Amino acid sequence: MSQHTDTGVPAPAADCPGGARRGRPRSEAAEQAIFDAAIGLLESGLALADVSIEKIARTAGVGKATIYRRWPGKEELFVDLLRSVEPPDPVLPGTSLRDDFVALLETMRQRGLAKRTSALLHNVFSQMQLYPRLWDAYHNTVIEPRRRMGLDAIRRGIERGEIRADLDVEMVNDLFVGPLLLRSVIRPGATLEPGLPEEIVDTVMDGLRPRV
């Protein structure tokens, strides 16, 4: 692995695209070295509690300041690391409630498959809920935005008259995402076959359409 060292801090950018942390443009090479180091430490058998910023910096060949300029702590670093190896969040088509939730559930299906085939994801997720700060950071920056995406899609569907207006939006979201969560978390051996998102959405939609 190539070594990376600090060469000084450039002047902060006033408006840096992508919201660079701590006022410094992000170095993709340094960030990838940090991610690679964290992954290597986890794959070597270290528990999350034993993977420190100091160990990551030493393995990556960077100073600790390089890491802290990008992340305020280990929890935030690991959240970004998980996001980097997961499928990206979908861009919803916005054409119908059905289309939006098929896209959302397909992303969930792909994440479920990734967790089954990635030793890193399986390792981290099996430990993550033991560390409340890490779980809270992941929930607030990853899970909660996806949930809001689903709730907004449901509200648009109600406005368009696709489903009944008397329905509880949170409950409807649970009905859509519940089957995939069940198969990927509670029943990790259950199938996640192609076409499952369409099957779930069509089944749920049958019970939500306006009554004649």
Rank of each mutant, 00 (worst) to 15 (best):
A119H: 11
L113I: 14
N123F: 05
F101D: 03
F125K: 00
L92Y: 08
T107I: 08
M108N: 12
P88M: 13
Q110P: 00
L92S: 09
M108E: 14
S118R: 00
R116W: 06
L120C: 05
L113K: 00
S118K: 08
L120P: 03
P93C: 10
F101P: 01
S118Y: 06
R109V: 01
V91M: 13
R111W: 03
R116C: 10
D100F: 06
P93M: 10
D100W: 02
S96E: 05
P88Y: 14
K115F: 10
D100H: 02
P93D: 13
V91I: 13
P87F: 07
R98M: 06
P90Y: 08
D89S: 13
R116M: 08
V124Q: 02
L105D: 04
S96Q: 02
L97S: 03
A119I: 12
V124K: 06
T107F: 04
D99M: 05
T95L: 09
P88Q: 14
D89A: 15
A103K: 03
M108C: 11
K115M: 14
R98S: 10
S118G: 07
P93A: 11
L97C: 02
P88D: 15
R116Q: 12
D99V: 09
R109Y: 01
L113D: 12
L120D: 09
L105V: 01
A119D: 15
G94P: 05
R116A: 11
T117H: 11
P90H: 09
F125T: 01
G94V: 05
S96F: 00
P93I: 09
L104V: 05
V124F: 02
D100G: 01
R111V: 08
E106H: 05
P88S: 14
M108T: 11
H122E: 13
L92T: 07
V124S: 00
D89T: 10
G94E: 13
L104H: 01
A103T: 11
R116P: 04
